[in-house]
Amino acid sequence: MNILVCIKQVPDSNKVEVDPVTGVLKRNGVESKMNPYDLYAIETALRIKEQLGGEITVMTMGPNQASGVLKEAFAMGVDHGMLISDRKFGGADVLATSYTISQGIQKTGSFDLILCGKQTTDGDTAQVGPEVAEWLEIPSLSNVSKILELKSGSMIVEMDMTHDVEIAEIQYPCLLAVEKDIYIPRLPSYVKKQETKDREIRILTIADLEDQDEMHYGLNGSPTQVQRIFPPEVNTHREVWNGDGDELTAKLLAKLKELKFA
């Protein structure tokens, strides 16, 4: 089984704010980490490999520093790493990101299974996975919460669809976006980290891709454009009540009655 896992490096904290006056982004502490949801995708790949054998490749699209998350994946037991990186990919929205990733995947080899996390904590769209599958013209399933059976040409999975649980069989090659808690991700191992310290990471730039038309990547390849950013609105009707517990309770009860809840 040849498995590819798409992972992303995200800011460690969400302490990003907009200065309400200047409209400038303030980023306090640009520490980065692996998108937590992608750990579940890696763990899923490792479990499948333990059962069926094969190889696992992790890939990420991002700046050079993003190779840190590939190394972290090595320390969890992943075999190969690939970084898709080029200044020309900057400003990519979901369509351009998924196109770039699909171009990279096609250059890397053929995979029976592609795994994605549920969503990222920065982009937070849960859209990249399904769009990658569309570009590659392979079937996809999201919300995968259990792998029930691995067959030779297909697999049976369970999906958590909020109001019901769906069981479906999907043929390889395919893409799955897995839920948090599908398996508990293992911790990176120190031994593996040492062993893989010098492992090579393959880097792909636009020059390595099949389609080298700059208009298809980054900002140019993005149908959606951010026009402006601004801080969230704060509410204007506000009453602050101070006092001891007794007074506050009395006021609260009166308000609940006035609003016809009590």
Binding site: P11, N14, K15, V16, E17, V18, L25, T121, D122, D124, P223, T224, Q225, V226, Q227, R228, I229, F230, P231, P232
Partner: peptide, 11 residues
């Protein structure tokens, strides 16, 4: 960015 910022987007 986790709700710290609102983005206005056009297509």
């Amino acid at each position: 960015f986790g709700g710290n910022i609102m983005a206005q987007i056009l297509t």
